[in-house]
Amino acid sequence: MKTGIILYGPPASGKDSVTEALGYPFQLFKRIKVGPGRTRGYRMHTEDQLRAMRSDVVYLNRRYDATYVIDRSGIEEALAEGTPVVHLGQLDGVRALSAAGLGTWMTVRLECRRDVTRARAQARGDHDLAARLAAWDATAADLATGPDLPWHLVVDTERHSPAEAASMVRAALQTDWSSTLA
């Protein structure tokens, strides 16, 4: 069965940076997005397109006045092409993708403090800082109420650079990671 990686964490925890540091054969899974804001790293759709593909939806969430979707056909295509890296900030999304029967998923939790999210979001020019911090709060609340999810790897991105985190992910993939839960 094909393998993918789920990078879970709050905004500005390093999901983009770690994915970039992973390099080939790892590739960002471009979720479908409907709505305003950043377009880079997404497959943009309209509301009508989203309605037409409802049966293909594995997971859908709304944040930052937009809708984000993980679709079955997109995951299947990404798994056929390489090792997809899916970015998530909700435990329900991790659970839905892990249970969808689409490959085997290594779950990696990226952590950083709220003030670090603030500083990183400001440094990268996010114009919706209040929404990013609200999302950090929601992620923290999600973790506090959902400790049942096992993690194959937990990385503090304040202590580890993106390159170090990527090395940790690659090393974990070389082990029998499916039996090592953090």
Rank of each mutant, 00 (worst) to 15 (best):
M1P: 14
K2E: 09
G4Q: 03
L7M: 03
G9L: 01
P10N: 10
D16I: 05
S17I: 09
E20S: 15
A21L: 07
Y24D: 15
L28N: 11
R31S: 10
P36W: 03
P36F: 00
M44R: 03
M44I: 15
Q49P: 09
R51K: 13
V57C: 11
N61G: 14
N61P: 03
Y64R: 11
D65C: 06
A66P: 08
I70R: 09
D71W: 12
S73M: 02
G74H: 04
A80E: 14
A80G: 09
E81S: 13
G82N: 12
T83E: 03
P84T: 10
H87M: 02
D92H: 05
G93F: 08
A99N: 11
A99I: 00
G101I: 04
W105D: 08
C112D: 08
V116Y: 01
R118M: 10
A121M: 14
Q122R: 12
D126R: 13
D128S: 10
L129S: 01
A130I: 01
L133M: 12
A134S: 14
L143H: 10
A144W: 09
P147G: 10
P150M: 01
L153S: 01
R159A: 15
P162D: 08
A163T: 15
A163R: 14
E164Y: 02
E164F: 09
E164N: 00
M168F: 10
V169Y: 06
V169P: 12
A171W: 10
A171L: 10
T180L: 15
